[in-house]
Amino acid sequence: MRNLGWLRLPFLLTFVFLYVPLVVVVVMSFNSGKQPFSWGGFSTRWYGVLAADTAVRQGLLNTLIVAVGATILATILGTLLAIGLARFTRSALLEAYSLTPAIIPDLALAIGLLVMFSAIGMTLGLHSVLLAHVVFGMAFVAAVVTARLGQNDPSLEEASGDLGANAATTFFKITVPTLLPAIVAGALLVFTLSLDEFVIAFFTDGPATPTLPIVIYSMVRFGVTPEINALAALLLLVSFTVVIAAQRITRLTDAV
């Protein structure tokens, strides 16, 4: 800090800017008053209100169903794709094509999927959100695993083959274990992205099964309540825990 000179100013400004809004929301979640903005004393009553809110609970369940399903599918497809790209083709075009779903504007993907689902006459619901989340999730897994494949030592697989292992044994005993940290990191990434994803879910979900972000959206739109502060504080806690855990995992695997 001391040797930063005048750079200290923008540095501190950034962190104040990033954290003050979050701190305010967390503090306000312990506010006893009905006013979501002004302080009326310490209380945890809004956490009680939140726990009794069935819409929020159902939204959370819907979100978890989508996130778990999308993570499993995206991890399998993305890992296969990354290995295939590294092993069987050096085509930069194919690689770019596979990674496009991760960088394309979410709104474009959302309307495209809405148009396609309605063109084939599919009813919208959690299944359509799940299918939609797999497409960008897969691209993120492929990106993470591809980065790891670049660092892998190919001689391990050659040695396995020389010692008489067939292709399948080599794949499951050598390739998958060495890639495991990257696969886990990719899966965690998809899971978090899917939990928070709003735009694509908003376009591809049916009205009967809103995911949690859609529930939050309607809560925020139709009035600000202290209950949202409590929900926000809990979600902050969850995502902070996941990010710090992921950080720990990657640091451990880097050390190995």
Partner: peptide
């Protein structure tokens, strides 16, 4: 902060 829900960050 980037990994927390987008709507929550806007709500803040």
């Amino acid at each position: 902060p980037f990994w927390t829900n987008f709507l929550i960050r806007t709500y803040a």
